[in-house]
């Protein structure tokens, strides 16, 4: 669509990240979702490319979880088209790793950390067979990666919120997904641990795309390649820059300043 030769203006945007023929893995075209005639998502267009870290910010109730569920094929849009690796989401779920916001589980459920992660291997296992050595090996690897290996025999409900979060990330990673969807992952993580969390994502990014949704503006990070704002409509310029007018349109109120941890800046100087 964008013809680079057409760009006659000399001042080209520095922060625009060129897509060096990165493959598009998820595409949403003109997506509308409504519950009982109330629109939750309006005309969403979004492309997610390989090995890209996209942050989506927006207020609570802005449709962030719904958008993720559309990508997962859990919610059928009333209009529009979703493609995951060129096919319907439900046909390509094995490529998606999903970390839900508050996993809907019973804290007293008798299940160990390792068993939780093994559930993620379901798609790679066979019917009528239990999980094999390869599955267990893989579960160990991802638990090690998220730093939870020592807790593998613990009952999941005995862990802290942040530890549970890491187990659910491991559960999502255990199938080697091509894209990782994270719904408000920082809600249960201590601010001090956030850097460690982002470093983990940075390592993961070499192997997969990451989509992180959050209502928390301070969660926008230097590690993100692109940032979009969502409040029923998506404000997105395929770049890392957030425009103040988009933020204000998203949050429906003036946004003063986005204060970040020091060494990075998402907004242009203004």
């Amino acid at each position: 669509m964008i013809n680079s030769n057409h760009n006659t203006k000399s001042e080209c945007k520095v922060d625009k990240i060129p897509n060096k023929k990165k493959q598009e893995i998820i595409s949403l075209k003109n997506i509308w979702v409504s519950y009982d005639d109330i629109n939750v998502l309006e005309d969403i267009n979004l492309s997610i490319y390989e090995q890209e870290f996209l942050g989506i910010i927006g207020p609570n109730g802005g449709g962030k979880t719904t958008l993720l569920k559309v990508i997962l094929g859990l919610i059928l849009p009333s209009k529009g088209e979703v493609k995951v690796f060129g096919r319907k989401p439900e046909e390509n779920r094995e490529y998606i790793g999903y970390v839900p916001q508050y996993p809907l589980f019973d804290r007293e459920f008798p299940i160990s950390v390792e068993e939780v992660v093994l559930i993620g291997r379901w798609g790679k296992s066979k019917y009528f067979k239990s999980y094999n050595q390869i599955d267990k090996q893989k579960a160990q690897e991802v638990l090690d990666l998220v730093g939870m290996l020592e807790f593998k025999n613990k009952q999941i409900g005995r862990l802290s919120g942040g530890q549970q979060q890491r187990v659910f990330i491991a559960r999502a990673l255990v199938t080697d997904p091509k894209v990782l969807l994270l719904d408000e992952p920082l809600a249960s993580i201590d601010t001090l641990l956030q850097t460690g969390f982002y470093e983990l994502l940075e390592r993961l990014k070499k192997k997969m795309s990451i989509v992180l949704v959050t209502h928390d503006l301070t969660a926008v990070s230097i590690y993100m390649d692109k940032v979009a704002c969502l409040n029923r409509r998506l404000f997105y310029h395929n770049s890392k820059e957030i425009r103040l007018e988009d933020l204000e349109a998203t949050y429906r109120c003036p946004v003063d300043l986005i204060a970040h941890g020091i060494p990075h800046r998402v907004l242009r100087k203004h």
Binding site: P100, P103, W122, Y127
Partner: peptide, 22 residues
């Protein structure tokens, strides 16, 4: 016995189970 894995996935977190294709 045959569906132990599947029933475990379904009971623990049926939304996640659906996402991974169960």
């Amino acid at each position: 016995f045959l569906f132990y894995k599947e029933f475990l996935a379904l009971s623990f977190d049926d939304e996640f189970a659906t996402v991974i294709g169960v």
